[in-house]
């Protein structure tokens, strides 16, 4: 087991190097730092001095890959590639364009993100599985048929409509909760979190319920379910004691892989509701064209995704003793 984890972790290294190279190519080779500077300072009437100053302030004035001016190891380390890309491996994210330390920002903004993402995931899981089990229990009846139709209809509505509509209905018309914002102590924070979490859950019901329903139905077609029924177990017992347990594997595949990425937050929810999490951080960075932050988030996201894959494999062995990692 330990050996497997170590091997998988080692396998992640070339992938991260690949990710790093792709982002480096996108940010520095396709567009030179000069281009970036011009974009920020305005395309027209910008003096070369201003560009040089902009680059120097942000450390983009070094050669890209190889510094022939500096001798020895410094010819490799005194480059943009080393400064901006290799350092990401040590989780040193450097500075944003406005001079703030990205690492510090990430550590601070992680918590609001988690405060929305974790409840949304858990409640969503509970709701989806409940609905899916209901549909599976009433399978091949009108309840099932219309349930699936409602799921497809809910899937066909863009998340944006759920957010804008929810904000308008619950926040503005009914005045139940604040429309956006974040803060306050204890119970006050919950008021701010309620709406994003509820909307996050609702927007996921359609696809989630349908997916879990398929999983349950597939499981219910298997022989052990027939055996359980033949023994005279009630349908409810079959569902909860046998089907649910065995359906855990496909459910886990979907869930565990997203757990680490919860840190990244939800782009849409956070920016619509003005939550100072990592999702809105990323959106702001994209809209302000802050390349340093986007680069850091790309790398962080990849690390978390790979971590999620690893966790999925490990969780298999915990749920299903038949699976042995080797």
């Amino acid at each position: 087991m330990m050996a497997y984890i170590i091997r998988r972790a080692l396998y992640a290294i070339p992938i991260l190097i690949g990710v790093n190279l792709i982002t480096f190519t996108l940010f520095f080779v396709v567009n030179s730092p000069d281009d970036m500077a011009r974009l920020h300072l305005g395309v027209k009437r910008v003096t070369p001095e201003a560009i040089d100053k902009w680059k120097q302030e942000r450390g983009y004035d070094k050669p890209l890959l190889y510094n022939s001016a500096a001798g020895g190891t410094a010819s490799v380390t005194e480059t943009v590639f080393y400064d901006k890309s290799v350092r990401l491996f040590m989780l040193d994210f450097g500075q944003a364009d406005d001079g703030r330390a990205i690492g510090q920002d990430i550590r601070e903004r992680m918590w609001p993100s988690l405060a929305i993402a974790v409840p949304a995931l858990l409640v969503g899981l509970l709701v989806n599985i409940t609905f899916a089990m209901l549909l599976a229990f009433f399978r091949a009846s009108y309840i099932d048929l219309w349930g699936v139709v409602v799921c497809v209809i809910m899937m066909s509505v863009s998340t944006l409509f759920y957010i804008i509509g929810g904000q308008y209905l619950i926040g503005k018309l009914m005045n139940l909760v604040p429309i956006s914002g974040y803060g306050g102590e204890g119970i006050n924070t919950v008021r701010f979190l309620l709406l994003p979490v509820v909307i996050g859950v609702i927007s996921g019901i359609g696809s989630g319920t349908r997916w879990y329903r398929t999983v349950f139905l597939e499981e219910m077609g298997k022989d052990y379910v027939r055996t359980a029924r033949a023994k005279g177990l009630s349908e409810l017992k079959v569902l909860f004691r046998h089907v649910l347990k065995n359906a855990m594997i496909p459910i886990l595949t979907g869930v565990v892989v997203v757990i680490p990425t919860l840190f990244m937050g939800s782009l849409l929810l956070e920016s619509f509701f003005g939550v100072p999490g990592l999702g809105s951080y990323t959106i702001d960075a994209i809209q302000n064209q802050d390349f340093a932050i986007v680069r850091a988030m790309v790398f962080l996201g990849s690390v978390l995704y790979i971590l999620g894959l690893l966790l999925t494999d490990i969780s298999y062995t915990l749920v299903d003793p038949r699976i042995r990692l080797s």
Partner: peptide
């Protein structure tokens, strides 16, 4: 490798680069 980069961010990175290219 491509899969492990969060989709929105990869798209954002690429589109930002294209934008720079177009404006230059």
């Amino acid at each position: 490798t491509l899969n492990s980069i969060p989709g929105v961010l990869l798209i954002a990175a690429a589109i930002l680069s294209i934008q720079v290219y177009i404006s230059n």
